[in-house]
């Protein structure tokens, strides 16, 4: 009885603002954050969920494990530098990695649309196999459903993952402290621009390939080098900007970054300039932000650069305005780096 009663909670989303779910609710920005906090956390609230991590860190008698899940709905299914299969493996592998766990096992659920060419399915599945091999994980169970034509973009994939934490470093937003150094593991925005370019038929002079890749080997190298990583998060939807804002909020500290130190390839910069987009809002699928204590930053950068030359130290954590992210502009001004609103929309002119 009591349990039923506890679930009779009024829907907390401001109904007048959002009577229907909009695409922006999945865009990785403010609206998604609000949806998660006001609906999902409100309904499912428990100590593990409140950890606010990319995955759930579970304490077992024999040690800590991490469980995570993610769904992949990318259109088109194939894009320069990857496909939905590679994304479904690397995305979940990276969510485990960001909790400091060595990825071990994945599940794979397929929602297929009636009419999908089996050749395409086979290409995706082969790509998943090679991504899994590269990341050192096995796909150990799965599920298949087929929906009527017109009810899905060819194929949706959900993967869940289990990983093991075999070190003593505690990684999470609560460990971030004033004075910490903020690093990014490589140039940002490739994945989002590659997909947008393919989807919208934009021809870039220099082709932009997705940055989709597994991150465990990089993180493992950092941990093995004894770097006391305070927090990590991969920059997916909402890009670098969303990660910095989430972590500033999660740690109740101010983050201050320098725009000139943010690595962005020439082709991504060019495409963003033309479309009026902010590269820090554009999704990556193989880049992460690492926050390390002062004193560890040079070694951390050395390890990151050995994996990706474009890795960079981009800023510091300050004991300032809690939850605020500030950015120094190339001409020496300073402004707020605000959470992206939702869907990326090119400007008129």
């Amino acid at each position: 009885m009591n349990e039923t009663k506890a679930l009779e909670i009024a829907c907390p989303l401001p109904l007048n603002d959002h009577r229907h779910i909009k695409l922006a609710h999945g865009g990785g920005g403010r609206m998604m954050q609000q949806l998660i906090e006001d609906v999902f956390v409100a309904a499912f609230d428990n100590p593990v969920l409140r950890g606010g991590h990319d995955g759930a860190v579970l304490e077992f008698p024999h040690g800590r494990s991490v469980l995570t899940t993610d769904s992949y709905v990318v259109r088109p299914l194939f894009f320069p530098g990857g496909d939905i299969g590679a994304l479904a493996v690397n995305g979940t592998v990276n969510d485990l990695t960001m909790c400091g766990a060595e990825p071990l096992f994945l599940t794979a659920s397929f929602i297929l649309e009636e009419g999908l060419e089996t050749e395409k399915l086979w290409r995706v599945v082969k790509s998943m196999r090679s991504a899994a091999d590269a990341a050192g994980v096995s796909i150990v169970t799965g599920d298949t459903k087929v929906v009527e034509r017109g009810h899905g973009d060819g194929m949706y994939i959900n993967t869940s993952g289990v990983g093991r934490i075999n070190h003593d470093t505690r990684v999470g937003p609560k460990r971030i402290a004033a004075g910490d150094v903020i690093l990014v593991s490589g140039d940002i925005g490739r994945h989002g621009m590659a997909v947008m370019g393919e989807r919208e038929g934009l021809a870039f002079t220099t082709p932009i390939e997705s940055d989709c890749m597994p991150l465990w080997s990089t993180v493992h190298a950092m941990l093995s080098a004894g770097i006391d990583i305070h927090c990590m998060r991969d920059a997916t939807r909402g890009g670098l900007c969303a990660v910095l804002n989430e972590l500033a909020r999660g740690s109740s500290l101010q983050f201050d970054v320098d725009e000139r130190d943010i690595p962005i390839s020439e082709s991504v910069r060019g495409a963003c300039e033309v479309l009026g987009l902010d590269a820090t809002h554009v999704a990556c699928e193989g880049r992460f932000v690492a926050i390390v204590p002062r004193g560890d930053e040079e070694r951390a950068l050395y390890v990151l650069k050995s994996q990706n030359e474009s890795a960079s130290m981009i800023g510091r954590v300050l004991d300032g305005e809690p939850g605020l992210v500030t950015i120094r502009t190339p001409i020496g001004g300073r402004r707020i780096l605000d959470m992206p609103a939702g869907e990326l929309l090119p400007r008129i002119c």
Binding site: T329, P330, I331, G332, G333, R334, R335
Partner: peptide
């Protein structure tokens, strides 16, 4: 102006 913080200068 606002994105580059020109007013600061």
């Amino acid at each position: 102006i606002v994105r580059f913080g020109i007013q600061d200068l």
